[in-house]
């Protein structure tokens, strides 16, 4: 418990930064949504955009912009969320694994009677707290906006979106954590993780360009977070099962890797 408390204290800056920053963005977007909606400019603007671009931002051209969640599915819960999730995962892995090993800061804990398993558990708890705060505060900010501006948000859909988003954050975070534990050099681990995540993102974007590239979505973890599908009440059970499976696999790999790693600190 003391380890979790200490790690949280050391990391609360970036954790709150992501949570509060994105929540404030969502709240303000929700606050101005009624006035945007009145102008009717969103639909007109979307109609004027090429379908490929809409696909990049995961905007369903047939979806009416009569609800804030419909707007957010293409705005925030598309490319913006993917990029934020990548940065979030890189920050987590860097702060809890790559940098402490590279600089030797982890020795503060490794010199204490703490097992490596305990350290990994504490890191993953921090990831859980950080992801929970991220999507939790996002959800709360939209609920607050819903109360204040009467946005008629479907709360079931809203929290399903948050749950899916939270799982994506956890999967990317654990994946970045494993990559970070493969190297002693933090710069190298950022590069490798960054390249892999960028490839995931590109595969997801390119898969929307034509049916010919449809298969590329299967190699991208981002295809497991489709906000439009959630809003249209399509079944997302498969995505959830995949995400939970990946999360479990990455967690096991994190334990296996870190408990066997030679630490030259």
């Amino acid at each position: 418990m003391i380890l979790i408390k200490s790690l949280f204290k050391q990391n609360r800056g970036w954790i709150l930064g992501y949570s509060l920053g994105t929540s404030a963005y969502l709240f303000f977007l929700a606050a101005i949504f009624p006035s945007i909606q009145e102008t009717g400019l969103i639909e007109a603007k979307l109609e004027s955009l090429p379908p490929e671009l809409l696909e990049v931002f995961k905007i369903d051209a047939g979806m009416t912009m009569d609800n804030i969640l419909n707007l957010l599915s293409g705005n925030y819960y598309g490319l913006i969320f993917y990029v934020l999730a990548i940065l979030f995962a890189l920050t987590f892995a860097s702060k809890l694994m790559a940098k402490p090993i590279d600089t030797g800061e982890v020795m503060l804990y490794m010199a204490a009677p703490i097992s490596r398993v305990t350290y990994v558990v504490a890191s993953l708890v921090i990831l859980l707290i950080a992801s929970g705060l991220f999507v939790g505060l996002n959800g709360v900010s939209l609920m607050l906006a819903n109360l204040l501006f009467d946005l008629e948000i479907d709360l079931g859909v809203l929290w399903l979106l948050q749950l899916n988003g939270g799982l994506i954050l956890l999967v990317l975070g654990t994946f970045a954590y494993i990559i970070a534990s493969l190297f002693d050099d933090s710069t190298k681990s950022y590069m490798v993780t960054g390249v892999v995540f960028t490839l995931f993102l590109m595969a997801n974007i390119v898969s929307g360009f034509s049916e010919q590239f449809d298969w590329m979505s299967t190699i991208s973890v981002f295809s497991l977070f489709d906000a439009s599908a959630i809003i249209q009440n399509d079944s997302i059970l498969r995505s959830f099962v995949w995400l939970l499976g990946l999360l479990l696999a990455f967690m096991i790999l994190s334990f296996v890797r870190f408990t066997r790693k030679d630490l030259t600190i």
Binding site: T103, G104, E105, M107, L108, A111, A112, P113, I114, S115, I265
Partner: peptide, 16 residues
Amino acid sequence: QSVKAKVGYLPGEINY
């Protein structure tokens, strides 16, 4: 874990 409970360690590079 048991070893570290019995050892006081002063590292060569202080990186708190």
